[in-house]
Design a protein around this nucleic acid. Sequence first.
DNA 1: TTCGTTATCGTGGTGATCCCTGAACGAAAG
DNA 2: CTTTCGTTCAGGGATCACCACGATAACGAA
Lengths: 214, 214
Amino acid sequence: MSKPRIVLVDDHEILRAGAAKYLAERFDVVAEAGDVAEAVAAIVSTEPDGVLLDVHLPSGSGADVVSGVRAANVDCRFVCLSVSADKRDVVKMLQAGVDGYLVKSTLGDRLPDLVAEALDGSMPVSPQIAGFLLDIDDAVAQEPSIEQLSPREREVVEYIARGYSYRKTAETMFVSVKTVETHMSHIFDKLGVASRHELAIRAFESGLVDGGAS
Amino acid sequence: MSKPRIVLVDDHEILRAGAAKYLAERFDVVAEAGDVAEAVAAIVSTEPDGVLLDVHLPSGSGADVVSGVRAANVDCRFVCLSVSADKRDVVKMLQAGVDGYLVKSTLGDRLPDLVAEALDGSMPVSPQIAGFLLDIDDAVAQEPSIEQLSPREREVVEYIARGYSYRKTAETMFVSVKTVETHMSHIFDKLGVASRHELAIRAFESGLVDGGAS
DNA sequence: TTCGTTATCGTGGTGATCCCTGAACGAAAG
DNA sequence: CTTTCGTTCAGGGATCACCACGATAACGAA
């Protein structure tokens, strides 16, 4: 009776099992995968109608899966399923070309409906996402992000964001304090921040540095 | 036939469904809950043998559930199930008195066994956790953490960590800049940091402040 | 070759941060 | 009652962070 065929991609086996249970009635779960390579292989070989995709995967992100599949000329629809409602994650996935973005915490019974919507062509999003989806252009535009820094500048950021003083950073990099100051000045301009403190926060949030703890 | 009775606590309905599926054969899932209040109520009223507990819950943490249940004089075993292998989370839950700590990514089929182990009295932990569980005493001991600060000092930290200058902080707290300086000096000593920048990073990492952006 | 970018280093300056010393008051603990 | 602790405040000095403005040199693209 031709239920839509879908693939589940998530690094948590338990969550895949849960999703499978909700989806079993209306969909045919043809494969599951726990990392990027597995996922691409599974999707390419099964050519499903849709993929339920986690954003954070070991060995990469959900976006890598999307580009991997597209590179293999396989066409199917992708729906993101993430714990994170973080703006950067959402932007990244939408730019990768996913067809829906759902937040794990806000759905249970409605999951099948939302997946079906995505397969039909509309774009279902969780309420948390819908909120800032409206000004997502702003978000993308105003993101003067880490990428536009030169290698040397990035290096400076890494030390400064970890709490190094200008002097300590200079010593570590074998340059003069004045050079570090100049770099910082340029970094401030490029990232649109005004102090090393704001810079540190930005660096943390964008995952450039990953809080030494743990 | 008296299967052990357990309660599932996690804010993701899908994950509960997945866990339930894995556990159904060997356990009797008597209740599920999605937040702290629900969880405590469910556990107190059903008095299960064990609880599978997420660390991060809306409206609180898993530790709140443990203390809530203990306060009601209900005795049962708790097993943590978290996406996070963060040292602080683990320490917090172990101090709250959980009987096992599992990381979501590293288990599927083995879940029932591990839960059974916890109910039997041993303490199952995921490999990621076991690693630093060995020197957890060090971790706790060498954590010259926020707790040892006086209330007023904590207040200062909150502003400084958010990027306030000494002057702005002083104005906001209706004290002189010199007072803020003194507090900071004491804070530096107690936390073993040397500058407001290190302090900000520490506060950021330990979740005392939560990066205003986004 | 000229231009833009990157990286390097300077002078000079202002305000913020940090350290040291010292001190006063009240509350809690001994 | 004495001691300790938390909170408040101050002077003075050393260092740091940031800004404005400028300079040299290397490299690659237009």
